[in-house]
Amino acid sequence: MPHARINGQNLYFEDSGGSGLPVILGHGFLMDHEMFAPQVEVLAGEFRVITWDERGFGLTEFDGQPFSYWDSARDCLGLMDHLGLERAVVGGMSQGGYLSLRLALSAPERVLGLVLIDTQAAAEHDDKRAAYRQMLDAWAEHGPVDPLAQTIATIIIDEPAENARWIAKWRARPKALIREPGRCLLERDDISPRLSEITCPAIVIHGTRDSAIGMEAAQALADGLGGCDGVVAVDGAAHAANLTHPDQVNPPLQAFLRRLAAAQP
């Protein structure tokens, strides 16, 4: 299986290969690279699609130490270096978007464009932070048992068959692995005041039924990015819109990537 030793982590990644425009996609909290299977299936024939597992998730071998999304951004940059990519489109869903925004701030010369799915620039809201902390503490102590697992799966996915598939994946992993990724999620900094520094083209895609991050946050993100034309609303989707509603996500995403590819020298 393909791994890259980067920043003390052994990062798992999958690379469709080819000479097309490189697109690197990072997954959301509690998810892994497999959540982008509906996008890889459609895009890989035209673009070089790279998906990877972030610290604490999937097949990546994580050192268990505290980290921030700035560190995750450095992981993505390290993966680009490992693959010999000077520039790429970067993005992802939820925390994949958090790290991609930070990558665009720390190394703008490496980013051709941003794909931002059900994510935001703000820190976690105070009214949600306490509830999420209780959920994560319960997970770390008891594991993803019901009704906790069902509640979280509904927040993220909200589709019975996919809920069951991802809950099974969660239960197969050590419960304590949630601690540091959870701390990173809840203690992330607010980068909203810096959005104007990001000038590359961007697409913001957001589920209309996302209860974790509301549409108002997506609109604020789109408004703050100079290279974004607005929010692509995914009707009926919860948090993982790209996984559950690829029929609405893939066409505008493909069109965005084609525009970027056409603009390259």
Rank of each mutant, 00 (worst) to 15 (best):
K169F: 04
C228E: 10
N242F: 02
L136K: 02
F36G: 01
V23C: 02
E54S: 13
G227V: 07
L25K: 02
M135D: 12
Q248G: 07
M31I: 10
A255N: 08
R133T: 14
I198R: 09
V90C: 14
A138V: 08
V234Q: 00
E61D: 15
F13R: 10
A233D: 15
G84D: 13
G226C: 08
A123M: 10
E197V: 02
L83W: 05
M31E: 07
A241Q: 04
V42C: 01
Q65A: 14
Y69D: 05
G182W: 08
A240R: 00
F13N: 10
Q134G: 15
V40A: 15
E41H: 01
D210K: 02
M31D: 04
Q248F: 01
L83D: 02
T154G: 10
L257I: 12
E86F: 03
T119W: 07
Q248M: 05
M80K: 06
I155D: 08
M215V: 03
R183I: 08
V23T: 02
L177S: 15
A4P: 14
L77G: 08
D229E: 15
E197D: 11
C76F: 04
D15N: 04
E46A: 10
N10K: 09
M135F: 12
W52T: 08
N242M: 13
E197A: 15
I6G: 13
M215I: 05
P22D: 00
Q219M: 10
Q134Y: 02
G28P: 11
A218G: 03
P201E: 03
K169I: 09
W70L: 07
S196A: 12
H142G: 11
D235C: 00
